[in-house]
Amino acid sequence: MKISFEITRETLTAHLNGELDQHSAGEVRKAVEAELKKRRTIKLLVLELSGVGFMDSSGIGLILGRYRQMRDAGGRLSITNAQPQVEKLLKLSGIFALLETQRRGRANG
């Protein structure tokens, strides 16, 4: 899993590239947490999923975990650019009811 970050004012965008399963979810969580710790002014975390060709329910666990983390810190979480199969899983999980989603372009809060 390749992860790159982009910061615009109070928004941290994490571009994920690879397959998101139980094996890779841990490293994504660690990387995102480390980045958030460095920048305490971040109010919106965006998970940009255009490069995620595979995701299973461990990815849902990761997203739920980041949602709680941002919410508890008074911030928000958004997911964007999910591929159709990833979107299918996200829909099944009902997670969209909690999150902001943007299908195209960059989420900027």
Partner: peptide
Amino acid sequence: NGERSGMGFAVMRA
């Protein structure tokens, strides 16, 4: 421990 969604069997079934 860890972040589990509890969705595994639901995904297999769906």
